[in-house]
Every structure is written in C-alpha cells, then in structure tokens.
Design a protein around this nucleic acid. Sequence first.
RNA 1: UGUCCGAUAGUAUAAGGGUAGUACAACGGUUUUUGGUACCGUUUGUCUUGGUUCGAAUCCAGGUCGGACAACCA
Length: 552
Amino acid sequence: MSEEKSLNFIEEIVENDLNSGKYKTLVTRFPPEPNGYLHIGHAKAICLNFGLTQKYGGYTNLRFDDTNPVTEKTEYVNSQQEDIKWLGFTWKNELYASNYFDELYAFAVKLIEKGLAYVDESSADEIAALKGTPTEPGKDSPYRNRSMEENLDLFTRMKNGEFGDGAYTLRAKIDMTSPNMLMRDPIIYRIKHAEHHRTGNKWCIYPMYDFAHGQSDSIENITHSICTLEYVSHRELYDWFIEKLEIFPSKQYEFARLNLTSTVMSKRKLLQLVNENLVNGWDDPRMPTISGLRRRGFTPKSVREFCERIGIAKRENLIELSLLEFCIREDLNKSANRVMAVLDPIKLVITNYPEGQSEDLIGENNPEAEDGGGTRIIPFSNELWIEREDFMEVPAKKWFRLAPGAMVRLKFAYIVKCEDFVKDENGQVTEIRCTYFPDSKSGNDTSGINVKGTIHWVSAAHAKTAEIRLYDRLFTSETPDAEEGDFKDYLNPESLTVLPNAYIEPALATADLDSRYQFIRKGYFCLDKDSTAEKLVFNRTVTLKDTFKKPN
RNA sequence: UGUCCGAUAGUAUAAGGGUAGUACAACGGUUUUUGGUACCGUUUGUCUUGGUUCGAAUCCAGGUCGGACAACCA
C-alpha cells in the first residue's frame, strides 16, 4: 500500500547525499538579484529550495546577490522579501553577497598570491577580441604574466580608487584555449564607481557573479546550490574557484526554468511592459509576477500547488496556463463564498410580484464547505437585474436559460416564466417580463415544476454598483518570445475589460482585500486595492470552467 | 562547424533491464437549484538507426532535432 511519490532528480541527489552521510544537514539558498520583482518562475525556485529543507530538514537562506550596484535597489529587496513571505516560506538567515565583500577581496588576493589571477588593463573590446569564439580558441592577454607583486599593487590601487571605471580588471588565470568560454580567463573584479544600496561608497570594485556566487555558497556552507540550466557551463568555473581557494565544497545543480504559455518571463521584457505603460505596474493583475498574481486573486497555496505539479527536470518546458488556472480554481472552489453579481445587466420585471414589496431570502455561502459555509441574507423584489446573455429571443437547441415562454429558477429564489419582453427602437432587448410561481420558493418548493436552468440575479432596488475588471491572457500568442518581430506586437488588446457599472448583491459591500468570492456562474473574484468606500473594484481571478458549447 | 545539456500522449511528469503510469487539456456520460463541483469513461506517447540482452523508454554506438555558451549582467 506504499503510495510512494516519485522523487525528482534533485530530491534523489539530496537523499543519496544524506543517506551516504556526505552531509548531516541540508542547506539551500534562494539567491535573487534585487533588480526587479519576483515572478512565477522564481516561485518555482523558491518552492524547490525551501521545499527541500522542509522535507529533509536543514534550512534555507535568503541571499541577495547584490554584486552589481547600478541595477539594484532596496525597493526590490523589500518586494522580494514580501513575495517570499506571501508564498508562505521562512528563511533562516537574511544575507547579502555584499556582506562578503571583504572576504571576497581576500579570496582575490589569495588567488593573485597563488599566481592564479592577474590585473589586465586591456579595454573591453581588446578583451573580447582575444576571447575567441565558441568554436575558436582565445589568445593570452599581453598583461597575463605580470609579477605577483605588480598584480597585488595594481589590485590594491584598483580598490583604493586610483583608476577610472573599466581601466583595469582582475582576471582569473585559467586557460584561454578552453572549449568552455567561461574558463578563458574570466573577469572576476571590475571597477565601478557607483554607490551600492548597502555598502554605499565603501567599494569601487565589485566582484563578478562567478566570483561571488559560489564563494557565498561556500561561506554559508550551502550543500546544494540549485540554479537554472543556463548556469550549467558556469559549474566548471564554480568548482575551479572552490578548489583553488580551498573552501567548503558547495555543489551546483541545475534544473530547467519555467516557461508559461501566453506570457513572458524575462525580467527585461517585464520591465519593458512596465516602463512603456503597457501594463499598470509590476503588480498589474495580468503580470506573471508574484505581486501580480497576488493582486489578481491567486492564493499562496494555489501557486505552491502549481509549482508542485509542474515538476522539476532538466528539459526545456512550456507549461500550459490552464494548469495554473486549474490550481487556483481547485483552491477557491473549496474556500470562496458564493455570491451573486450581474456583470452585463438587463432588467427583469416580475409582473405578479407586488411592486414595492421585498423579502429576505437565505443564501448558502459555500456548498463545498461541510456546513455550507454559513448563510447570508439576499433581498428579493419585483425588479431584478439579470445577465443579458441569459436571455435568448430565439432560443438555440439545448438552451436551458430564459427565452419567450421558458422557465428558469432564480438562484436561491423562485421559478419564473418569461411571458414577454420589450425592445427599443434599435431592436435591443431592454426588459424581460416574467411571472413567478409563489410555491416554488427555494427550500420549500411544492410547485412540482422542474427546470433545467438556474440563473443568478440581483434585486434592482437593493443592488450596489461596482467596477469589475476582467482579465484575459496578456498575449495572443502562446509563445510571444518565439514569434517573429517584437514580442509586444502580440499583446492581447482584450487582456483587460473594465465593466464600470456592474450590480452586486448588498452583502458584498463589506468585502475586504483578503476575501475571495465566487460570483456564481461568472468566476472567482477579489477586491482590488483601487477600491474606495464609494467605488468597489473587483478583479476576476479566473473564470469558472465552462463546458457549455455556445450556440451560434 | 567546437564544448556542454536535453529528447516519453496536445502539455508536463513517472517508470532507473521485466504490464508505459499520473496530472492538466480535449471529448463523452452520471449527479446537480452554478452549463460550476463531484464521480465515471474515451482518445492520444517512448526522436531515429543499429547493437548488447530471454527481455530495452531504461545500457552502448551513430544520426536527427531542440537548447545553452563569445556582458567589465546575474
């Protein structure tokens, strides 16, 4: 009966390392550069790193990879922390690569002393020219064989700010003919007279990624340093530095990053969407950012579930958006209270219900909850708003909704029969006239009438109005990255539809930012932060699954 | 014309020499006061050619296809 869940390849490595006694404690890290907002791809890495130590014990550090002062900001540090916390994870230590600048500097000196690094004064172009190409070996720099003393002196002066940006670099002395471009004497320190968001102006030289990441891992005794596939070729360098520096041997493992259909994930492109006002900021509900998903109404649980379901492997992948939608529906179906809202209203008048009279009906909040999720009061009267699309003047085959002579149940209320309808001079239906069956009241229906359709409604006299924002996929192409031309040419012009005057049931007036609702038959919605006391704004998180085949 | 990584239904992901399984999607049905949910069912797969073996998705070799690598970015 062992329903053993299969392990992904990283879990296998971890289990082996733990079982063999190679490590006593598992230590991982999540290492974002604070130069942008976190997105769903980062969520995959977060769930992996934190999930591993939750499962196997040990702990996970949050380490900001802040070695490039010109792109990094405290604003991003803060948002990234907020997003990780929102996802439900707690880091052991909050750390910064910039904490290690002194140690990193000492590592560089050690390398120079071992004859394994040298100061180069070639320009960027000159370095590039000698670098070779993936298919041709590179050539040694004319400055490659300086004496150790000279290297030490120059590096000290680099640190002391004697030179301008780009005048000198410190390079590891490896092999200019290596088939791995990264081993061709990579630059490990560069001069940047720039203020750092944490170290201020203390430094004017900053280590490169390859001379900071592995060393930081090592300083923190990270056992499994997990990153994405584009770092595979960095692993050789990662190991080389650890070996030459004789420091704790962290090991790097790579998995395939997440790609999602109908969106883009690269920071550069997301930044472009924000900067060019093609979306309304990093937390625009159409963005794949964690803050965007949060504002859209996704729950942390649903995002974690998604990350669990997509799996971890080494092959390039493109996950269908429908899986993400499934995960949020699955969660909200169980947790979101059902309410009624009419998005595209048309008036329905009940001719045999006394004008001016109203009654309070009882609505079950959530049929998926054990106790029905409690109940609420829903006012009913002779004039209601219903959804325009729930009426067809000439009904299609298998039409369960309203049409001349047809009967439907009004959810939580009575069965009504369409007796007549009114059109304006343009032929637009403006009003539907019905009679109701007083003995068909929900809960004590003695009418014996059976109807196929149930529709939602709001009492016109009691309704509140709200703005409702409907979101659709951001791009019309499933693979905007792969299309010809600019990815922005494939933006979906209908990714946002604003309905300024929808009608909502009065109980919704007390909605707060943490509540999630199912608008019956219309989807899952949450209150947007743009809401004010006078104007409520709701975001559609996702539609309900719709298996109804639209008649044409 | 290099080095490295990869290839299992439409999309992902298992099976680690012994029945190709699961999820999402799609399609059909039952239930239903949400055309929702739940439940049941159907369709669809091992890149290719050889080799090893009683037996290969799995091991080996060649090929094909896809991806990564020439930032003083991470």
